[in-house]
Simulated scan of single mutants.
Amino acid sequence: MWRQTSRHLLSRFTIRGSSKPFSAAANLTEAEPETDSTFIQAWMKLVPNIEPPKTPLSFMKPRPASPSSIPSKLTVNFVLPYQSELASKEVDLVIIPATTGQMGVLPGHVATIAELKPGVMSVHEGNDIKKYFVSSGFAFIHANSFADIVAVEAVPLDRIDPAQVQKGLAEFTQKLNSASTDLEKAEAQIGVDVHSALNFALTG
């Protein structure tokens, strides 16, 4: 429920300077076909007459082995359920809003899986810093200086309308105060949390 509600909330915001939906289809890349041989062998033993379904490996490029020395760049893939925002982008640093706190990821970072909470993710490439507000998701940091970041919803921070954020925060605060069922309270609390995080990102 958290991910569905937070995604719906972000879709309500008026994006300044553009009437088009946030899209980066040009960044999409076609992955090299791979197979999970162990899964396919097990499948064929059980149901040999039906073609096995594709596994996530079918859509992912193979990762290189961990280098003997730490590379100078971190390779980042940043994807949403409907598009790819960054594909094999080499950057200096990524800061993600993990549930355990702000987490900086540099080349050579230890392998980690981190759950994301509503907040700002910043991508640093030299003096260029690109900031996104993400609703939730996961970051998969690999030992070979690759990071796969999967967000339920995200939008560049400079395209969020502060007036809509303030309006949404007031609406959900009122809903939380007047909620009479556990479901209404949960949905209103998610709205308050997301809008509070957005407000902090814009003003903090």
Rank of each mutant, 00 (worst) to 15 (best):
S66A: 14
A139F: 07
Q164K: 13
M1D: 06
P118D: 03
K89R: 12
P97D: 08
F59D: 01
A147G: 06
N199K: 15
D193F: 05
A147T: 11
T35D: 10
Q41R: 14
S11V: 05
L57N: 10
D92H: 06
V165G: 03
P156T: 04
L176E: 08
P162R: 06
Q102P: 04
G126M: 04
A163H: 04
D158P: 06
W2R: 11
E184W: 07
S84G: 12
S19D: 09
S69G: 01
R159N: 10
M1T: 13
Q174M: 14
H142Y: 13
L28F: 09
T5P: 03
G104N: 03
A111W: 00
V194C: 04
K185M: 11
S84Q: 15
P118F: 07
V105G: 04
F59W: 02
A163N: 08
A188V: 13
L183I: 14
V155K: 02
S68V: 07
L116T: 03
G119K: 07
A111C: 03
M103W: 12
K131L: 00
L176A: 13
I190Q: 12
S180F: 02
Q4R: 14
P162L: 09
K61D: 15
P52G: 05
A24W: 01
N27Y: 05
K20R: 12
Q174P: 01
V105S: 01
T112R: 12
S122L: 01
S122T: 05
L106G: 01
A186K: 15
L57R: 14
P118K: 10
A26N: 13
S18M: 00
L198S: 03
K54H: 11
K54L: 15
S136K: 05
A188P: 11
A201V: 10
I95W: 02
K175Q: 15
G108W: 04
S145Q: 03
S68E: 08
F172G: 01
K73D: 00
E85D: 09
V47G: 00
P71H: 02
G119I: 07
P48F: 09
P118E: 06
K89Q: 11
S18N: 02
T173K: 15
T29H: 12
G191Q: 08
D182N: 13
Q166D: 15
T181A: 12
G204V: 11
L74V: 07
S66M: 13
F133G: 06
S6C: 02
N199E: 10
S180V: 13
R3M: 07
S58T: 13
T5C: 08
S23Q: 14
K167D: 12
S37R: 10
D128K: 13
K73F: 03
E30H: 10
A201E: 05
T38N: 12
H8V: 02
S145P: 02
G126C: 06
P62F: 04
V123Y: 01
I70C: 11
S196Y: 01
A188W: 09
L93K: 08
Y132A: 00
A26R: 14
N49A: 10
D128C: 04
E115R: 12
M60I: 02
L183E: 14
S58C: 15
T14F: 01
E34M: 14
W43S: 03
S135P: 00
A201M: 09
G108Q: 04
F133M: 09
M103D: 00
L10M: 12
G104C: 04
T14W: 00
R63D: 06
F59V: 03
V76N: 02
L116W: 03
